[in-house]
Amino acid sequence: MSTQSPRRKRATVHDVAIEAGVSRGTVSRVVNGERYVSDEARAAIEAAIVKVGYVPNTAARNLVMQRTQAVAFIVHEPGPLFVEDPNIGEILLGANATLSAADYQMTILVVDSERDTERVARFLRGGFVDGLIMVSARTDDPITRVIEQLELPAAFVGHPPGLTAAWVGIDNRGSARAVTERLVATGRRHIGMIAAALDRDSGVDRLQGFTDALGDRFRSDLVESVPLYSYSAGVDGMRALLARRPEIDGVFAASDAVAAGAIEALREAGRSIPDDVGVVGFDDSAWARRTHPGLSTVRQPAAGLGRAAAESVLAQLGGEQPLVDGIMVETAIVWRESA
């Protein structure tokens, strides 16, 4: 003979209505946060909910309201870089805090291949999220075209050319110019750049800011292009610059991770920092605080970008028009011993 107790039946709106002595419609209005319910009826319903142990069926309610209470966070980066880049994590946490406060869940989607693009596109078309935040979109990005076609409430971190959706970002060009000018002011004569991610707006703008700062002193053979904002790209880029222009005495790396890799390659070549070569980065991420000496860099508020992107999506879900002119967040130069 089985000793298992029978499974307890889940309490329903009907059970709450009987206990409170009101109609099921009145209970539904309270559960859904609607107005026009008397204080007396509301108090009776809230007490009945506790007594009968009623838990609202969120999935069913969302189906009726055609809302999922979920927002996608899409990162277009290789998987290893998603883990390596602390900026992505900071943006994610900033966005999640804002969404959580509004009772929205975050769904994380990583686009690392053409197959991922197709998979994520199917997911978005399936109606599993109410909106999305996109990080690291490329120029002529197929996933960006899908997002614009679906007309989902969306906010991009960064501003790819031709984008017509809401976006948040920083002045990459002006910030890169400012930190390069500071490096020039230290007396360096042969300043190069490891330019990363030139298939997106941030990479192109940082290279342009570097070019602006050097003016007539700019030399194209002192620029090495690498594909990603990664440590290994910084190592490879610095080795290539040293082989081509061994007299180099200053380097602007397009991100802190790239700068950390550059410092490793300089040490490998017997160069001291900053005596032989001054190095500056971009982000003021955890990489900047792990390098020795400490890395001079541009501080961009990654968590603030995430919060602003999430606020934009929530505003669109509330009926507001997307801010296609963009939201700009302030940056600052942080000067340490590396330059």
Rank of each mutant, 00 (worst) to 15 (best):
G234N: 07
V13L: 15
G126A: 12
D141Q: 02
S272A: 13
S296F: 08
P142S: 05
I133L: 15
F156I: 12
E114N: 12
L132D: 08
S202T: 14
E181G: 02
R173K: 12
T180P: 00
A41K: 12
T26G: 10
M238L: 08
M106P: 14
I327S: 15
I191T: 07
D15E: 07
A48E: 03
L63W: 09
A165K: 09
A332Y: 01
L222T: 07
R182T: 09
S23C: 10
D256M: 03
R7N: 05
V157P: 11
M65C: 01
G281Y: 10
R182W: 13
G261H: 01
S230H: 03
W167K: 09
G319D: 04
G53A: 05
N57A: 05
T164Q: 13
P301D: 15
P142W: 02
L81V: 13
G94P: 12
G169M: 10
R115W: 07
G326W: 06
A70I: 06
H14I: 10
P301M: 11
V55K: 13
V37P: 01
N172V: 03
R122N: 14
I45L: 08
R188M: 06
V334L: 04
V111Y: 01
R122K: 14
D39P: 01
K51T: 08
A197Q: 12
S255T: 13
A121Y: 02
A196K: 02
V226G: 02
A308C: 12
F252T: 02
G53M: 02
G237D: 06
V83N: 09
V83A: 14
E19P: 00
G318C: 00
G169W: 09
M106W: 08
R24P: 11
L152T: 01
P153Y: 00
A11P: 09
A17T: 05
V120M: 06
A43W: 05
V313H: 02
V223G: 07
H159D: 11
A213Q: 03
W335L: 12
D216H: 00
S255C: 13
I108E: 11
L163R: 00
S113W: 11
L63M: 15
A240W: 05
W335V: 14
T3L: 15
A47M: 09
M1Y: 06
V129G: 00
D171A: 12
I88R: 09
A253H: 08
D275Q: 14
P227Y: 09
E224T: 10
G174C: 04
A269V: 08
A302M: 14
A17S: 10
A102Q: 05
S23W: 09
Y54C: 04
D140I: 07
L295W: 03
A213G: 04
L242G: 06
E264Y: 09
H14G: 09
A70E: 07
V75K: 04
S175R: 00
P322G: 01
L183P: 02
V184N: 06
T180V: 12
Y104L: 01
G319R: 03
E34Y: 11
G278C: 07
A259C: 09
R35Y: 05
G169L: 08
R125L: 03
A178I: 01
T139R: 08
T26R: 08
L163S: 13
D85H: 12
A265C: 05
T139V: 13
Y229R: 07
N32A: 11
T164M: 06
D199V: 05
V71Y: 04
Y229Q: 11
P160Y: 01
L124G: 04
T164L: 05
S38V: 03
V258I: 14
V258A: 02
A332D: 14
I45D: 10
